[in-house]
Design a protein around this nucleic acid. Structure first.
Lengths: 153, 153
DNA sequence: CTTTTTGACTTTCTTTGACTTTCAATGAAA
DNA sequence: TTTCATTGAAAGTCAAAGAAAGTCAAAAAG
């Protein structure tokens, strides 16, 4: 049931994602195609293709800019979605380490990556003049999850 | 992905550097070849082949002028040592990105890791309520380098 | 009241071109 | 033969124009 133009655009984008794990959109072309203002595309993207629904958006402005939309796959998408929620509050080193360990066991990251990330989110690393606090830590973890989501297939 | 003419030119130059440690370009010829204005070559050089990414540009004007582009490489531990020093002050997103790009080109990190780390140190990531400031950023980068150093002899 | 639509304004990146600087080669003058 | 000014062929600079995408809030619709 397509009530609004936003719904129609959502449908269109959704079906473009049927065949591919990601697509590249031109905001202006899309807007022209649907006879709407460009910012309507942002609206659709922001309200329908959210990270919580398993989508990741990347874009570039300027000449030959683009919007790249990636869909996460289900198993991992769920896990990542939950992890993302888990990262919505400040996290201790311990919590973050456990989450990373979890990711490792689910083979979302390999050993080297696990070490790298643990090292990053560890507060008390050698000689570091400034600690990473729990808020920043969950911030970083969220970022990691979002990035990993792009690769999940 | 080659979206703009700048990207195409970057690609072209990059692959010319695959076999050689340096190349000599003719700005005008290149521009003619890609049907663009000569200063576009400068643009590509200035935005993509920066010192931070490990390139050195020398040139000569006038009759029989040229542009010589050299890719630096010192050994990995040296590079990491210098990078560590480079990370002693607060870093902008741009600086950190360039350093990561450099690490990638030196094969110290792979593409996936590069993206992961870029994503972590990027301030403006989607929905992030809190920015990572330049001090934290250099802190993180230092940590990354320290971790990588463990794998390098 | 909530969701959608619209548009003015902003930011970012790329492309273009007019103008400037530098250098090697040339050739005339000493 | 040496010197030096001229000239044309590069490359450099910088700012304006162009081409996207992003933001935000007001207006409209439901």
């Amino acid at each position: 049931m397509n009530r609004s133009i936003s719904d129609v655009i959502e449908q269109f984008i959704m079906s473009s994602l049927d065949d591919n794990d990601f697509i590249e959109l031109s905001r202006n072309d899309l807007a022209k195609f649907f006879s709407c203002v460009p910012s309507q595309i942002n609206y659709v993207l922001n309200t329908r293709f959210t990270i919580n629904r398993g989508f990741v958006i990347e874009s570039q402005r300027g000449g030959s800019g683009y919007i790249k939309l990636t869909r996460m796959h289900d198993n991992d998408s769920n896990f990542l979605k939950n992890s993302l929620a888990y990262c919505s509050k400040p996290m201790t080193v311990l919590e973050a380490n456990q989450l990373l360990q979890n990711m490792f066991e689910k083979k979302l990251i390999n050993e080297r990556e696990t070490n790298l990330l643990k090292s990053i989110i560890s507060a008390k690393a050698l000689n570091n003049p400034i600690n990473i606090d729990n808020t920043i830590r969950s911030n970083i973890m969220r970022q990691v999850i979002i990035e990993l989501s792009k690769n999940v297939k």
